[in-house]
Simulated assay, not measured.
Amino acid sequence: MAAEQIKLEVVTPEKAVLSEDVDEVVLPGSEGQVGILPGHLPLLTGLGIGEMVIRSEGGERRFFVDKGFAEVLDDKVSVLTQGCEGVSDIDIEHAQEEITVAEEEIARLEAQTEVAEDEEELLERYRESLKRARTRLVVASEGEDRA
C-alpha cells in the first residue's frame, strides 16, 4: 500500500462489501460528512443514512450507506453498516415505491389529531424509510455521471 492511500473495509451483517486501498473516503457521519485521508487521527464515529464517496486513481465511486459505525486506525478505515449499495445495486423502481408508501403513511399519521405512542414510532420508521429511499435515488443519479 502506498503512503498516499488508506485501506478501506466495509462490512454489513450479510457480507464484506469492500476491501481496497483508496486515496480518500467521505462518510455520512451522524453529525455531517466526514472526510478521511491517509494519516488521519484515530476516530470512532457513528454513521447516519447517507452517501459514501470513495476517491482513488483520479476516479470517484458512490455508495448508499445505512447507518453504522466507522473506525479509523493506522491508515485503515473500517465501516460497519446495516447496508451498503453501489450505484449499480440500487433498485430505482423499488426506491420510488418506498417513497410513495412512506409519504402516504406519513401524511395519514400526521393528519390525526392525536397520535398514540406506538404510532409515533411508526411515523419515525416511515420517515427513516423515506430518507433511505430518497438517498438511494440521489446516490444513483449522481453516480451515473461518474461511473
Results as ranks from 00 to 15, higher is better:
56 S>D: 11
55 R>H: 12
105 E>W: 01
106 I>Y: 01
13 P>K: 07
128 E>W: 10
98 E>F: 01
134 R>E: 11
143 G>D: 08
18 L>G: 07
129 S>Y: 04
9 E>P: 02
105 E>L: 02
114 E>T: 11
76 K>L: 10
66 D>R: 02
65 V>Y: 01
82 Q>A: 15
43 L>A: 06
129 S>D: 11
58 G>K: 05
39 G>M: 07
47 L>N: 00
84 C>I: 08
85 E>P: 11
33 Q>L: 12
57 E>H: 12
88 S>L: 13
97 E>Y: 13
14 E>W: 09
60 E>M: 07
75 D>I: 04
31 E>C: 03
86 G>Q: 13
93 E>P: 06
73 L>I: 13
36 I>M: 06
60 E>V: 10
21 D>N: 15
31 E>T: 14
82 Q>G: 15
1 M>K: 13
27 L>F: 12
54 I>G: 02
122 L>T: 14
34 V>A: 05
19 S>I: 10
56 S>V: 08
29 G>V: 02
25 V>P: 09
123 L>I: 03
77 V>F: 05
105 E>T: 03
116 A>Q: 11
114 E>I: 11
4 E>K: 14
45 T>N: 03
3 A>C: 04
56 S>L: 05
117 E>S: 11
71 E>Q: 14
33 Q>A: 14
98 E>A: 07
79 V>T: 02
12 T>V: 10
70 A>Q: 00
98 E>W: 04
38 P>S: 07
80 L>E: 07
38 P>M: 08
37 L>K: 11
55 R>S: 12
36 I>G: 02
28 P>S: 12
81 T>C: 06
86 G>N: 12
92 I>R: 14
62 R>Y: 09
74 D>R: 14
44 L>M: 14
119 E>A: 06
28 P>I: 04
26 V>L: 09
68 G>N: 01
57 E>V: 11
69 F>H: 04
35 G>M: 11
30 S>P: 06
109 L>D: 01
105 E>Q: 11
98 E>G: 05
72 V>Q: 01
67 K>D: 01
64 F>H: 03
138 V>G: 00
99 I>T: 09
129 S>I: 05
44 L>F: 14
101 V>R: 03
6 I>K: 00
95 A>W: 04
111 A>T: 05
89 D>K: 10
142 E>L: 13
142 E>H: 13
101 V>E: 10
18 L>R: 13
136 R>Q: 07
119 E>S: 01
131 K>L: 04
82 Q>N: 15
58 G>Q: 06
85 E>D: 15
6 I>W: 04
29 G>T: 03
43 L>N: 06
105 E>P: 00
24 E>H: 11
133 A>R: 00
104 E>I: 03
104 E>M: 06
9 E>R: 08
3 A>G: 08
8 L>I: 06
119 E>F: 01
84 C>A: 15
47 L>F: 04
145 D>P: 04
59 G>R: 15
71 E>I: 05
22 V>K: 00
122 L>R: 14
144 E>I: 13
145 D>V: 15
123 L>R: 03
76 K>V: 10
8 L>R: 01
35 G>K: 12
1 M>A: 15
97 E>Q: 14
140 A>L: 06
87 V>Q: 09
79 V>W: 03
132 R>H: 04
76 K>I: 08
126 Y>H: 08
10 V>K: 00
63 F>W: 10
71 E>Y: 05
99 I>R: 04
78 S>Y: 14
116 A>R: 12
132 R>C: 00
